[in-house]
Computed example of a mutant assay.
Amino acid sequence: MPTARKRARTYDPVKIRKAVEAQLGHVRAAVRTLTPEQLALPTRLGEWTVRELVAHIGMAVTAVHRSLERPAPPRQDATLLDWPFVTSASSAAIDDFTRGVAERHPDLDAHLGDVERTLTELLDTHPGSRLLETNVGALPLADYLVTRTVELVVHTDDLNAAVPGLDIPYDRQALAACTRLLADALAVKAPGGSTEVRVPPYAVVQCVEGPRHTRGTPPNVVETDPLTWLRLATGRLTWQEAIAEAKVSASGERADLGGLLPLMA
C-alpha cells in the first residue's frame, strides 16, 4: 500500500456532511421508484443485482454507525489518502455482508430511510474530531466522511449504468470530493511532477517521476471529466477503452496512465 505522508488537501466538514446527506437522499429518492423487475437487473459488479447494489450503498454509509459503536482509538494512525489502497482487501467480507443486508431488508426504501435518520442523529452527536476504527486504521470522523462521498458517488454511477433512464443526480460537492480524493491518490501512487492530470472543474495534480516543468504548458498532460476519472480510478473503465472512446486526452511520453490504474478495484 502506498504511504501518504500528508493529506493532499483539506475538506470543509460542513460541506462534506451536506454532500453525503444529499447524495444519500438522491439515491433513496431513486430507489423508491424501482420496480421488482428493476431491482433484479444485473449490475457491472460481478453477480450483484441492483438489489444487492442498493443494499451495499446502505452498508457503506452505516460503516460510520458501526465505527462509532466501537471505542475510540487512542491515536490517529492513518491518513485519508491511505484509504483508497485498502478497499480491495475486504472484498470477500463486503460481498457476504452486502448479501446479508439485502436479505434482511426487503424494503430497501425503508432501510435507507432508517440509515438517513440515524446518520443525521450520529453526526449531530459526535464531533468531526472523534477518532474511528476503520478498515485503514484510526481516522477522524470528518476524514472518514470524505471516503463516503466516494462510495456514494461511485455506486450512484453503478446504479445509473444498471437501470436505463434512472439518471440519479450527483451532488456537486460529493462529486468534487470524490474526484479530488481519487486524483490525490494517483499522486500518492505515482509521486513526481512530470505529468499533469486535469479533471475539470475539480482537480489538478502533478504525478509521475521525470523532469518537472516550472512554467507554461507541461509536456505531459492528461485531461478527462469527473465521471470518466472515477470510472478509471475504480476499474469500471480501462485506460485503453477511455482512449479509444475519446473520453481522455493524453499528450506526452509520460501521459500513459494505463499502468497506474485502477487505484481501487
Rank of each mutant, 00 (worst) to 15 (best):
I94L: 15
V50A: 12
P200K: 05
T217N: 08
R198Y: 12
L112G: 14
R198M: 15
L112T: 11
P226A: 13
Q38I: 04
R7H: 06
H105W: 06
L186H: 04
A142N: 00
P71Q: 12
E121L: 07
M1S: 13
G252D: 15
G137Y: 08
L34W: 05
G137L: 14
T179N: 12
G193Q: 07
A138Q: 02
E37L: 06
V150A: 10
R254V: 09
P36F: 13
A78C: 02
P219F: 13
V188N: 03
Q240T: 15
Q76S: 05
Q173K: 08
D225C: 02
R148K: 13
T79E: 10
V64S: 00
A255V: 08
D77R: 03
T217Y: 08
L232I: 05
V14C: 01
P191T: 10
I243T: 13
L230E: 10
H56S: 07
T10D: 12
E116M: 09
Q76F: 02
V150Q: 06
E52I: 12
A72V: 12
A250L: 12
D12Q: 09
T238Q: 01
L45R: 03
Q38S: 05
V54E: 08
E103I: 10
A255Y: 09
L131W: 05
H126A: 14
A190G: 08
A40N: 10
A22E: 14
Q76L: 01
T98G: 07
R28Q: 14
L132C: 00
V27A: 08
A233F: 05
P13K: 01
L53P: 04
A89I: 06
L159K: 04
V222T: 02
R99K: 07
V150K: 01
L159T: 04
L141N: 11
A4I: 03
V146S: 09
T62F: 08
P200R: 14
D167Y: 06
V197F: 10
L53K: 04
I94V: 15
F85H: 07
A55C: 13
E209Y: 04
A102G: 12
T87I: 15
L159V: 12
T120N: 04
D95S: 12
Y202M: 12
V20E: 03
D158Y: 01
G100K: 04
A255E: 07
P36A: 15
E103G: 09
R17S: 06
V14Y: 00
L139Q: 08
I16W: 03
M264N: 06
P140Y: 03
R236K: 10
Q240R: 12
M1H: 09
G25S: 10
D167F: 05
V197E: 06
T62R: 03
L260H: 04
A176R: 01
L175G: 03
D171V: 03
R70A: 15
S251R: 09
R254N: 10
H65M: 02
V197C: 04
T35L: 09
R75P: 02
A162E: 08
A63S: 11
F85N: 10
L68A: 10
